[in-house]
């Protein structure tokens, strides 16, 4: 009897703890490990390197492939609402499910997933703080079997264009100052010393940044172990750069995935009004007649 009482007390404690820990936009690895079997949770891995998910993922997590699942593979666009709905249903997601995303490469692509789900009005989407890297570093269990979830019943909304910045919005913000523009690429890309980091084939034919943008590289938003900095530290970081959330914000990078990470910090953790510009520099740096600032002065010579 005593044991039953103790067990139920412990369960009650765990449940309240679970509810508490899942309130914010982030979940900790510890919380997730304790709540993997909980009802109403769906874990989705968005890793960009092939074979990473298959060789060991968080038990029960569903695999979503960024290059083919979350973007349109033919025209440059986010995946269609039907595709997203199909993916979510296959992962067992219902209207009231909490979706927890994580992935490799610092959660960049998982953050892209969170942004796309936000565009389609999916509620209760969270990121595993620290992503795959921290889960592995802490030696937590991994599974190699693909899970079979009962089909979910979620219906996604139409894409909300106000969550997304298009090139015209960026030009308008640059010229009219209607929004703060944050370029989260490296200082060298921002200043125009280089067009793209070494090894990237998709590039642009102009160097520099959107006129009026400020540079806060994405990595400044995280701690050494890959977890986001505290909300206070994040607030101070962006305030120091002149962004306090009093005006709308646009984030961009090279292809839009790292800027999703900063989008998540600003919109989900700090609650600011943020749009992600997924066209990013690979669109803007190739566009004709848009305002560009190139401090370092690198001239594209076709090399």
């Amino acid at each position: 009897m005593i044991r039953i009482l103790l067990t139920s007390a412990a369960t009650a404690l765990t449940l309240s703890h679970a509810a508490l820990a899942s309130d914010g936009p982030l979940v900790t690895a510890e919380w997730l490990e304790q709540n993997l079997d909980a009802e109403g949770i769906s874990v989705i891995e968005v890793s960009v390197n092939p074979g990473v998910y298959e060789r060991g993922h968080i038990p029960g997590a569903t695999n979503v492939v960024w290059h083919t699942d979350l973007v349109d593979p033919v025209r440059r666009d986010i995946a269609s609402g039907e595709r997203i709905q199909e993916l979510l249903r296959a992962a067992g997601v219902n209207e009231d499910t909490t979706v927890i995303l994580y992935g490799d490469t610092n959660n960049w692509f998982a953050a892209w997933g969170a942004w796309v789900l936000d565009v389609y009005g999916v509620q209760n989407v969270k990121l595993l703080d620290g992503g795959r890297k921290l889960w592995e570093a802490e030696g937590r269990a991994l599974d190699t079997a693909a899970p079979a979830h009962p089909e979910g019943a979620i219906t996604v909304a139409d894409a909300d264009a106000t969550k997304r910045a298009f090139i015209a919005d960026v030009v308008a913000a640059s010229e009219g100052g209607s929004a703060d523009i944050i370029d989260i690429r490296s200082a060298d890309e921002f200043s125009g010393k280089i067009i793209a980091p070494e090894g990237f084939k998709e590039t642009a034919i102009r160097a520099g940044h959107v006129t009026g943008a400020i540079n806060v590289p994405w990595g400044q938003a995280v701690q050494e172990d890959g977890r986001f900095k505290s909300p206070e530290a994040l607030k101070a970081l962006y305030a120091e750069a002149g962004v306090d959330g009093s005006r709308p914000i646009i984030t961009y990078c090279r292809i839009g995935e790292r800027s999703s990470h900063t989008w998540f910090a600003l919109s989900k953790i700090l609650g600011y009004d943020v749009r992600n510009y997924d066209g990013s520099w690979t669109e803007y740096g190739n566009a004709v007649g848009v305002p560009v600032t190139n401090v370092a002065g690198l001239v594209w010579t076709g090399q």
Binding site: G51, Y53, E54, V65, T68, A145, A146
Partner: peptide, 15 residues
């Protein structure tokens, strides 16, 4: 069988 239970999904096994 563990990684790709449904081989006709259009995906190829990774790597």
């Amino acid at each position: 069988g563990a990684w790709l239970p449904n081989p006709s999904s259009g995906r190829l096994p990774p790597d």
